[in-house]
Write a protein that binds this DNA or RNA. Sequence first.
DNA 1: GCGACAG
DNA 2: ATCTTGTCGC
Length: 307
Amino acid sequence: MRFRQEVEKLLAQVEAGRVTTFGGLAEALGDARAAVPVFRLLRRNRPPGWHRVVRADGTLAFGEAASRLHEEGVEVRGGALRDFHRILFQDFRTDRPLDALRREQRVLASQVVLKDRFQEPDNVAGFDVSYRGDVAYAAAVGLDWETLEVREEIGLTTSVDFPYISTYLAYREFDPVAGCYARFEGPPALLLVDGNGTLHPNRFGVACHVGLKLDRPTIGVAKSLLMGRLDREILAPGEATPVRANGEVVGHAFRPGTGKPIYVSPGHRISDLTALRFVQHLCRTRIPEPLHLADRAARRIRRYHEG
DNA sequence: GCGACAG
DNA sequence: ATCTTGTCGC
């Protein structure tokens, strides 16, 4: 889905003299958590009708909207709407696109393979994306499995039309990541993605999305916990423990030699324990080497394009 | 003031 | 993720 286009479709339904809220638009998109992304989009792009969007308490988020609203016969006093509840538009016609994506995740999750269907890899690639507004700077670094020497490095710049919304990360990052993947001369044997695999409310984080669509063994590594509970909360350096949700193991927390734990979960065509073992093999520092290098490469590309 | 859910 | 200087610590 194109986020901006979907918001504009909804905004076109709010006639002059009426208003909606950031949360109202988000709910019409299919997920109330999109309220802040909607706010950011309107602040940046000001599509037609932007001035008719206010906060949930009826106050203006954009002061400049006051004069436009006044022209439409809407009374504004001290930054708040006079007859907020009377002019609040609530009858959006919508197919709730974010909810459709959530349902898609549930369907695709059933196709994920959590068994080790591969040989010991001889190389591994890490992927990461850096952003400047809507411009994505993606990088991928391919390493030799044994020596961890860099074999290949890919960089790609593209614009994205999907904001960061928790649990929908793949819809922001898949295209840049897939673009990098397509440019490898020799397809990597194992993929490492910055974010979760099965450690996700729909068991389908970005690493599952990438692994399934590209049909490659894939591991997800996150730097903070999205959901679930650790079997044991306190981890000594080098120690790992399962992360559970509804009683089932969805990944592992692993505390490297230094710093906070990282959260490892299978993306596709790998088991949770093999994913953990492989990540341990790849950890020179807190962040597995392929991801660490991809992160630095993506930032370097962004800074280069900035000037 | 609390809660605050990957990047 | 990004906005951002110096500062603290291994």
